[in-house]
């Protein structure tokens, strides 16, 4: 089996496991992660695998439930960013050059924005709810992929069979739906994956900096509380900060593996080089 394919399978298995855990996990737990069940700062025990946080709430439950928050925002952002990128990139590819020029300058502008500072400002001004966070990250992440997709559309446009169809009088919409989209659509997969990766890391960064909603369950929130409650000065980081950190690493790695595998599959030149 080729390395790319193997990586892709590992990634897919990991992602599926994480998704299943996020969806089904909370039902299997005996607590919602908000009940106070143990002494504050209780270390791990047979009942509480990862101990308790500063209010005595189960950290393992928070880890499982936090997956929903972290994967949820990844999914939201990736969907939104991919949609915006596909629309903007696709339209820019089809539009007359002067209009495409304007659109692409807007893309340049968004690309030039300082990412994290802007995100911090937006989080401070607009409030830290899940929807706002997702919207802000998505609003910043779409620009790079939009360029990629426009390039894909332009490349597809110049292909022989499209030129031929056009010569026979096919409309732009027909061409787009029938002939260009099969070429461009696979480009969306890595776009989706990359947006999801960025979203998870950014959201965790925001939460860690205390700019997220400190009461909404997510892996970043767990790390935030571990940090502000001094877990780094005691052994508690082992069961409080490390597990959500590893979960983030695992998710991002899985996404990266899937991304590599799809790129490998879609790009024949890469395949031959191996």
């Amino acid at each position: 089996m080729r390395a790319g394919l193997l990586a892709g399978r590992i990634g897919a298995v990991l992602l599926t496991a994480l998704a299943v855990g996020a969806v089904a996990g909370p039902w299997l737990l005996s607590t919602d992660g908000r009940e106070r069940l143990a002494a504050p700062y209780a270390p791990p025990s047979a009942d509480r695998w990862l101990g308790a946080d500063d209010l005595g709430r189960d950290l393992f439950a928070q880890l499982v439930i936090g997956a929903r928050g972290s994967l949820g925002i990844a999914l939201l952002v990736a969907l939104a960013a991919t949609t915006i990128a596909a629309l903007v990139g696709g339209l820019a590819g089809l539009a007359p050059p002067w209009a495409a020029g304007i659109v692409m300058r807007v893309v340049d502008l968004v690309l030039a924005l300082p990412f994290l500072p802007l995100l911090i400002l937006a989080a401070a001004f607009l409030g830290p709810t899940l929807g706002v966070r997702a919207a802000v990250v998505a609003a910043l992440v779409w620009a790079g992929p939009a360029r990629l997709i426009r390039a894909g559309v332009l490349a597809a446009w110049s292909r022989g069979h499209l030129q031929a169809a056009r010569a026979m009088g096919a409309s732009a919409w027909y061409l787009l739906l029938r002939h260009a989209s099969p070429v461009v659509a696979p480009l969306l997969v890595p776009v989706f994956v990359r947006a999801a990766m960025t979203a998870i890391v950014l959201d965790a960064s925001l939460a860690f900096l205390g700019l997220g909603d400190p009461t909404s369950p997510s892996w970043g929130t767990m790390i935030h509380w571990a940090s502000v409650r001094g877990a780094m000065l005691t052994d508690a980081w082992l069961w409080w900060a490390l597990p959500p950190g590893l979960a983030i690493v695992l998710t991002v790695t899985a996404l990266a593996l899937v991304g590599v595998a799809t790129e490998d599959r879609l790009n024949p030149t890469l395949r031959q080089a191996r």
Binding site: L211, P214, T215, W225, V228
Partner: peptide, 13 residues
């Protein structure tokens, strides 16, 4: 205040 952990926890309780 989001930057005051004691108060955030108090609010939750």
């Amino acid at each position: 205040y989001a930057n005051n952990p004691d108060r955030v926890r108090t609010a939750e309780l």
